[in-house]
Nucleic acid binder design. Structure first.
Length: 255
DNA sequence: ATGCCCTTGCGTCAAGGA
């Protein structure tokens, strides 16, 4: 079973590139973030034609998350999570696919730092961490995949010490992510590739992708039951290089 | 120190992104 996460940066604007990637990569389950579309403009028909069932939690202009499943319908378990400090923002959707509970998340960016938006990011990450701890306690197979908007360590960045005033690299944000891993969530791609950066994002500025000035901010965290079955993973960098691409690349695992 | 580039919306610019 191949499970992917992809911040599409506009699901309608990117629909052709999304469909091309789905046909090429053939993931069994996909977490999408930054739909930038309200519920009634989610392209469910086009995705169904491509062979994917879907559940979604949209929002006009910003945020928005969805879960796709190839050849079946995801079994929706929740939109949003208990304790979310900003439930009006569509940042979480969760569904069961093929016996695995999958949480698809889009954490707040938190810029500019410092300030209220960064404080809101920390509050969201703390609340999400508490919810995730509850999932772990159930002992069921869970994958929490999405755009965490955290560069976990300097190694996950094109140049250690770069963008030091950015919300994505602040110690408090890194501590929130580290706390998830410390509680028992397995950072799948870092586990598989301890010596490779595995960037998932390159900004649109300054030819960042061509110069490989990237960062790793999209993560798949696995509960112990899933981590024990981890068989492989990667980042589809070529998707980032396609014309009209999102600024993120898909990241994926196989269990 | 700043902007670069890109998205969506009822829009001719703003706000958010990271």
């Amino acid at each position: 079973m191949k499970i992917a996460t992809y911040n599409v940066n506009g699901v309608n604007g990117r629909l052709p590139t999304l469909l091309a990637w789905l046909a090429e990569a053939r993931p069994d389950a996909v977490c999408l973030q930054e739909l930038k579309a309200p519920d009634d403009r989610f392209p469910a028909a086009a995705l169904e034609k491509a062979g994917y069932g879907a559940v979604w939690h949209g929002q006009s202009r910003w945020n928005g998350v969805a879960l796709l499943a190839r050849g079946r319908e995801p079994v929706l378990t929740r939109k949003g999570f208990p304790g979310d400090p900003t439930p009006e923002a569509s940042r979480y959707i969760e569904a069961a696919v093929g016996g695995v509970l999958i949480g698809c998340l889009y954490a707040p960016n938190g810029n500019p730092w410092p300030g209220p938006r960064f404080d809101a990011k920390l509050a969201w990450l703390a609340a999400f961490g508490a919810y995730a701890a509850g999932l772990l306690a159930h002992g069921v197979p869970v994958v929490l995949a999405g755009d965490y908007n955290v560069v976990p360590t300097p190694f996950d960045l094109y140049r250690p010490g770069a963008i030091a005033d950015n919300a994505l690299v602040q110690p408090e944000a890194r501590a929130a992510y580290a706390a998830l891993v410390a509680r028992g969530w397995n950072d799948a791609l870092r586990h598989l590739y301890p010596d490779k950066p595995m960037f998932t994002f390159w900004d649109y500025f300054r030819d960042a992708f061509a110069r490989d000035r990237g960062m790793r901010i999209d993560h798949l965290l696995l509960s112990p039951a899933v981590a024990a079955r981890l068989a492989g993973g990667g980042v589809d960098r070529e998707a980032r290089g396609a014309a009209g691409s999102s600024d993120h690349a898909p990241a994926w695992i196989v269990i």
